[in-house]
Write a protein that binds this DNA or RNA. Structure first.
Length: 476
RNA sequence: UCCCCCAUAGCUCAGCUGGUUAGAGCGACUGACUGUUAAUCAGUAGGUCCCUGGUUCGAGUCCAGGUGGGGGAGCCA
């Protein structure tokens, strides 16, 4: 069946033509006006029925949520709310939706309620807008790297690498948990497992991406990532998608430039191609913020915030400079911070928030952290105390990107493995890239859902991924 | 994992220092109206007050435990 998508019918270009449209009923007013959405855009199409020509049995089935298909002529609307409408000649209900049971009503629902209806929440304007935006953002990410000569590398999802230390891992096994094979010491004998050794779901594709970068030059991964941390926050998922570029011959400064350019590209893309969604989400945010006290609201609207990021240079400062700024700040002097601010301890959320939301009100890139609070693979600076690490912090979300220049010197990397208790035979393949033709290189990880949060103004990460995985929650 | 808050109709919520028949708005249903924009107007139905136990003459209300949800923290992206 040849169909027209609704997004192509809301302008007057096709007026006079006979059209076929299918979609889901939003409202049915006056036994005559059927508002239908097919997901092609936020816009609903108004189908105008001939009340007398439409059997009552059909009209009774035209309830919110029902799937319908209609044939008619596209005409200029006689009403005020829309440019065009369809004079329906024939309408068929493909799938009714019992109005007593269908949970999505033409009224505002709480995000908490819709989260429990994750299978149906796509039918709402908010979630359809979020997921169209999510699609556009992932397309823009691929577009950015492809245009810049990167190759996408599919790094493994099942991995035996346990060296990254990025978090607790999900074990993957085909052994029967009620009948585990044990060796003579009573320890599980993984030689009988599918891979002959213990394996996990990946917590990061970085180490493997580094291997690719040391031959292909510029690579990136964009795949699912799993953390079995018992994190119960609005910014963490057990299953999330991460973008991890890795570039040979880049230093830390190049790495920050890449992160900044990438963010600016994807936000510019959605500002150009998804303005309707962004305008809708900006309105939604405004409504939601009415419930909040004035000091908890965003200083700028959603679109203004995104433009600000695309048009201004990110603030760059070292960890040491950040500590100095924090120690000179009002909340520090008034002892408003709960956690100590001194060189050597990691910055807490409250400190990052102050820097990003109060001091600069802009994305901030913090660099050169103390070695002791960062990972083993980050490149040691000449001062011997800090490493060439970077975090990109954005208002409302905190850490959006974390990255570093990688340690390319074999002797130092081997020493770091010892300090971090990483057995060399677990990462022998990683170390060999430093043995054969080592070169400076750098990369970062960007949490895709956090990017979608930032771009959409949604405040809970569970509302920007179709089917969120969090502790005790894997329905659907 | 820790701290705080919450759980009452399909949804959002009210329900006072414990008191007799648990309410509102929206939605749904029935009817009226018919160029409506979350249509309007009138009416009707709809409740295991999250679960278990306790205190009390009496518990939606107080106490304990549990479950679920939210906000914040840690871990991080």
């Amino acid at each position: 069946m040849k169909r027209h998508v609704i997004s192509s019918l809301i302008s007057t270009d096709l007026v006079g033509e006979s059209v076929t449209v299918c979609g889901w009923v939003r409202t049915f007013r006056n036994d005559q006006f059927l508002s239908v959405n097919d997901g092609s855009s936020l816009q609903n199409l108004q189908l105008v029925l001939d009340r007398d020509a439409t059997p009552e049995a059909t009209r009774k089935l035209l309830t919110t949520g029902a799937a319908v298909c209609a044939v008619g002529q596209l005409v200029e609307s006689q009403g005020q709310g829309q440019a065009t409408e369809v004079k329906v000649e024939q309408v068929e209900v493909l799938g009714p939706a019992d109005p007593e049971e269908f949970p999505i009503q033409m009224k505002r629902h709480s995000m908490e309620f819709l989260r429990e209806k994750a299978h149906l929440r796509f039918r709402t304007s908010t979630f359809s807008a979020v997921f169209r935006l999510r699609h556009a953002l992932q397309f823009a990410v691929h577009d950015f790297f492809n245009s810049d000569g990167f190759y996408m590398l599919h790094t493994p999802i099942i991995t035996s690498s346990d060296a990254e230390g990025a978090g607790e891992m999900f074990k993957v096994s085909t052994l029967d948990p009620t009948d585990l094979p044990l060796d003579d010491k009573g320890v599980v004998d993984y030689s009988q497992d599918f891979f002959g050794k213990p394996v996990n779901l990946t917590v990061s594709g970085q180490l493997e991406a580094e291997l690719g970068a040391m031959a292909l030059g510029k690579v990136y991964t964009f795949g699912p990532t799993f953390r079995a941390e018992n994190s119960n926050t609005s910014r963490h998922l057990a299953e999330f998608w991460m973008i991890e570029p890795e570039v040979a011959f880049n230093d830390l400064s190049d790495n920050i430039d890449l992160a900044e350019a990438c963010l600016k590209h994807v936000l510019t893309y959605v500002l150009k191609h998804n303005l309707a969604e962004l305008e809708f989400l900006a309105q939604r945010e405004l409504q939601a913020e009415k419930q909040l006290p004035a000091d908890k609201r965003n200083a700028m609207g959603l679109i203004e915030r995104l433009r600000f990021v695309t048009e201004n240079s990110f603030i760059r400062l070292t960890y040491t400079e950040a500590i100095d700024l924090l120690r000179a700040s009002k909340p520090f002097k008034k002892k408003k911070f709960k956690f100590p601010v001194e060189w050597g301890v990691d910055l807490q959320s409250e400190h990052e928030r102050w820097l990003v939301e109060k001091k600069f009100n802009s994305p901030v890139v913090l660099t050169d952290y103390p070695a002791s609070i960062k990972s083993f693979y980050m490149r040691q600076n000449d001062d011997g105390k800090t490493v060439a690490a970077m975090d990109v912090l954005v208002p409302g979300i905190g850490e959006l990107i974390g990255g570093s220049q990688r340690e390319e010197r074999l002797d130092i990397l081997e020493k770091k493995c010892e300090e971090f208790n990483i057995p060399k035979d677990h990462v022998w393949w990683y170390l060999e890239t430093r043995k054969f033709g080592t070169a400076p290189h750098a990369g970062f990880g960007m949490g895709f859902e956090r990017l979608v949060m930032f771009a959409s103004g949604m405040t809970n990460i569970r509302d920007v991924i179709p089917f969120p995985r969090t502790p005790h929650s894997a329905e659907f």
